[in-house]
């Protein structure tokens, strides 16, 4: 089943996928256990002439066993999931690349702060539906929405976060492999929900610089994108 997972290019993706596999093995084992027992019982204890069922109302020890074991499994799963979750959603790494993504029916408005690294200044640049990011760097996203709730989904980065009107949600992602990845909208947002999508371009250092210079030619002569955070 898991071979259908889309290619993963993010730093936390392997962790998510590992959990996915972990749960997959647990649940597959549970499924096989239950199914095999069921089929075996159905076969072994099928009605035959002269058979009489065992008159038993249960077995406390057994019942305790199958209460405690799943409980332990679930609790350990909870702990295994917790740290990963915190890494993705709570601890946002320091980064100099920030973009603002504003969803609206039915487009993604991407705003780049420009060379000064600040939003709401002259050199901000808005591009619809295309995100350009450098490879291998954490990107902070400020997620907003103009109208209804949308879902910012990057399948290849194992990233998803709803964009809620009236809120600014901070999130982060990082792409470790150059390429072009789809950005579907994952939350029902109206008749255009299907087809609301953008593209994430993950550029290698040179390409990113080329793109950056094309956008902000005035800064190109200065220091380039790396200067953003330190300005």
């Amino acid at each position: 089943m898991l071979r259908w997972l889309p290619e993963d290019v993010s730093p936390y993706g392997p962790g998510i996928d590992a959990l996915f596999y972990f749960i997959y093995y647990i649940t597959a084992a549970a499924f096989i256990l239950v199914t095999v027992l069921m089929i075996w019982f159905l076969f072994k204890y099928r009605h035959q002439e002269g058979r009489r069922a065992v008159y038993s109302h249960g077995n406390t020890t057994l019942e305790l066993v199958w209460t405690v074991i799943p409980a332990l499994v679930f609790i350990s799963l909870g702990f295994a999931s917790r740290s990963k979750w915190d890494e993705i959603k709570i601890h946002i790494p320091d980064t100099d690349t920030v973009i603002q993504v504003t969803a609206k029916q039915f487009n993604w408005e991407i705003v780049y702060p420009g060379p000064d690294g600040k939003f709401n200044t002259e050199d901000d640049k808005q591009i619809d539906n295309d995100i350009h990011v450098p490879v291998g760097k954490p990107i902070r996203v400020i997620l907003k929405s103009r109208d209804v709730i949308h879902g910012f989904f990057l399948p290849n980065l194992r990233f998803k976060q709803d964009a809620v009107p009236g809120r600014e949600i901070n999130a982060w992602f990082q792409a470790n492999k150059p390429g072009k990845y789809e950005i579907p909208c994952s939350q029902l947002c109206g008749f255009g929900h299907s087809g609301m999508k953008g593209w994430l371009y993950v550029d290698g250092p040179e390409e990113y610089k080329k793109w950056y210079d094309a956008q902000w030619p005035q800064a190109a002569t200065a220091q380039g994108p790396a200067a953003e955070a330190h300005s």
């Binding site: 749960i23 647990i26 649940t27 799963l77 979750w85 959603k89 989904f153 990233f159 994952s186 939350q187």
Partner: peptide
């Protein structure tokens, strides 16, 4: 059993990030 076991995937928060709304 099948439906319940698939519920375990989404109960795990990091996994649900990916499979939510799919």
């Amino acid at each position: 059993v099948i439906g319940g076991l698939s519920g375990i995937y989404m109960a795990s928060t990091p996994v649900d990030i990916f499979i939510h709304d799919t």
